[in-house]
């Protein structure tokens, strides 16, 4: 269970302090999916980064199965990212020096949870079997995003955090990639929190919430 309570985060800019999150409350049960929507600059990605332990909140709490995330050391946060979550970015962020096969297996091996059969299954399901020896730059955007999803799910994380995973793809590819992602998330037994602008895509998830003025306005909010 993921619980977010009164989460606040602001950034210091040349114009002064810019509050981005001003008391966000959120709950996500194990195995469920949630679409986080909002306008550009509403703080969706910031919230995702805080949940991933990539950044620290100014105040408020994030609880993972009742264990607080804030206050953890950098090493503990790194372990959380390695073993607890899978991250999918809009810009894929694959490791350019490694081929597809190594990219797919990277996080699972890092977390010590590599399963060859699950890996093969993911590869086949994602349609990457013929591309394993290629490097990320030799792939199309949709192919790269499928590799990113495969990498994120290879370790069967408890929580998949996806930041506009289909933002760089056309509509048809978006649908295809999202379908695959949700299917595999379900098979991995993971929860998913996906940031998206698209109402159409958001409808494919079980729950939805809107981030506005630094707060969750409806949906899965407390």
């Amino acid at each position: 269970m993921l619980v977010v309570e009164q989460l606040c985060k602001s950034f210091t800019t040349a114009q002064g302090t810019l509050p981005v999150l001003q008391g966000v409350d959120l709950r996500l049960a194990r195995g469920s999916s949630l679409a986080l929507m909002g306008e550009s600059g509403s703080g969706k990605s910031t919230l995702l980064h805080l949940l991933a332990g990539l950044d620290r909140a100014d105040s408020g709490r994030i609880l993972i199965d009742d264990e607080p995330l804030d206050g953890r050391s950098e090493a503990a946060l790194a372990r959380w990212r390695r073993q607890g979550i899978g991250l999918v970015f809009q810009q894929y962020n694959l490791i350019s020096s490694l081929d597809v096969a190594a990219n797919l297996a990277f996080q699972a091996r890092l977390a010590g949870r590599f399963e060859a059969r699950w890996q093969d299954y993911l590869t086949r399901q994602l349609g990457l079997a013929d591309l394993l020896q290629r490097y990320p730059e030799q792939l199309s955007g949709g192919q790269q995003q499928r590799v990113a999803i495969g990498r994120a799910l290879a370790a069967r994380p408890a929580l998949l955090l996806a930041d506009e995973p289909t933002g760089s793809l056309d509509e048809a590819s978006s649908d295809q990639v999202l379908e695959l992602m949700l299917q595999l998330v379900a098979e991995a037994g993971s929860s998913v929190l996906m940031v998206t602008h698209s109402q159409r895509l958001a409808l494919r998830l079980e729950q939805r919430c809107l981030l506005q003025d630094g707060r969750v306005q409806d949906g899965a909010g407390r």
Partner: peptide, 13 residues
């Protein structure tokens, strides 16, 4: 750009 994904995947700075 090469190191940030590793950090995101759980490798410490």
């Amino acid at each position: 750009g090469q190191l940030a994904p590793l950090w995101a995947l759980g490798v410490r700075r």
